[in-house]
Design a protein around this nucleic acid. Structure first.
Lengths: 225, 225
DNA sequence: CTCTATAATCTGTCTAACAGATTTAAGGCG
DNA sequence: CGCCTTAAATCTGTTAGACAGATTATAGAG
């Protein structure tokens, strides 16, 4: 804790309230004015804390009605607490394996021409990043995200963002995966992605799903041989 | 677009400033007062946006000095926000079909005794709610969520929460399934859930996956015949 | 008992102010 | 000219009070 903002403390105290009082998903929190009174701070501070709680997906505010529990913090915290960063990253592969393989299959089936262009553009961005030997983590994610979007089903993007949003947070916390990659690995990664894009372009559902599964399988191995 | 908080807009505009002006990591943002003047809002609103930016690891505030860029916002992160407002009732089934079927399979494979108890408890809650003819939507979700948790892989819960986070909102908007639920449908829903739980208890991966797929398939049909 | 109008709450937002930390500018001295 | 000390300007962190608009609770009429 470098800084001592009151809203940090209020954030933690509201989390405690939800956990201690066992507030279920959908339950209403005390009003901002009430919380301010309880913690002895101004309403503005409570609002700052609530903004972060909402940003973290724990609460949700409805105008005129109140703030409500959206996802119990104990569960959200549990996914960071027990295991270290790497296992969580690895765990996401298990989900990506089914989620993104299905996305690739559906993208191949019903992508529009515009969505295809968007995917191809993402592929170009990844290629440029990889060939310039820069950290290509963002571009990698972006391509995968565009493929999820090419299904035309926003639910895939919802799940994708949830998965990679928190992974991104974890990596910002100090884990540096972008270690030095030898040239042959770069070429391999490029080829794997290209096979996925080619299959989607050719409207080959099974090929796209298989290429995605293979790529994720290999990616997981690269992370933890 | 359920809510239009000014701080949401300010958040996006500050991200735009960082990207457009090419502010490097460590660069100082305009002061809160200046930002408030630029966007035509009060300083409190700017602070609420800055709290979320700080929570997302993009900026960092130093007391008396100013707010500084901590990490350049990626394009992916910028697109992260608007996706939260998409209603995805039917589309979510397409994702649940692969996601929860895999969760059921893995839960059957490696559930602990404690996780099994947690699932059984969820089943009891659902049974009680359904038999009392009360809206059982929350209990239904809770059982599915506990099954996702029984995989031991928190990534499944991440994806699950993302998909079902807005369901409460949708239900409140008027789609009330519980009203039009004849007794035979209740019995059917109960049986479908029981088959899933039984398969997980019996550590039958394929049976669990199949039962989940069947249940979701029927559920989708009940929603939109 | 149901429907409706009214009152009470609650979020979203603004303005004005002050303390304390930090940066900047101004001198003063070698 | 360059360096150090000091005072002024700036900035974040925080408080108080106010008002509009949305939502929920309440009381009353039929």
């Amino acid at each position: 804790m470098s800084q001592t903002r009151l809203s940090d403390h209020v954030y933690a105290q509201i989390v405690d309230i939800i956990k201690a009082d066992g507030l279920a998903v959908g339950a209403r929190l005390p009003s901002e004015a009430r919380l301010a009174e309880m913690f002895g701070v101004s309403r503005a501070i409570v609002r700052e804390a609530l903004m972060r709680l909402a940003s973290d997906g724990i609460t949700e505010a409805r105008r005129g009605a109140g703030s409500f529990v959206k996802s119990r913090p104990s569960d959200r915290l549990a996914k960071f607490m027990p295991s270290t960063e790497l296992p969580t990253t690895l765990g996401s592969y298990e989900v990506r394996f089914v989620l993104e393989a299905e996305a690739a299959r559906l993208a191949a089936t019903r992508r529009t021409a515009q969505e295809m262009m968007y995917v191809e553009e993402g592929m170009e961005m990844l290629r440029a990043a990889l060939l310039s030997s820069e950290p290509a983590h963002v571009e990698d994610m972006e391509l995968h995200r565009r493929i999820a979007g090419a299904t035309g089903n926003p639910a895939f993007l919802l799940a994708f963002d949830a998965l990679h949003g928190d992974v991104d947070k974890i990596m910002r916390a100090g884990v540096d995966i972008s270690r030095s990659r030898p040239p042959d690995v770069i070429a391999t990664m490029l080829r794997e992605h290209e096979q996925i894009v080619v299959a989607i372009r050719a409207q080959d559902p099974e090929g796209a799903a298989l290429a995605m599964r293979w790529h994720l399988w290999e990616g997981r191995r690269r992370l933890m041989p």
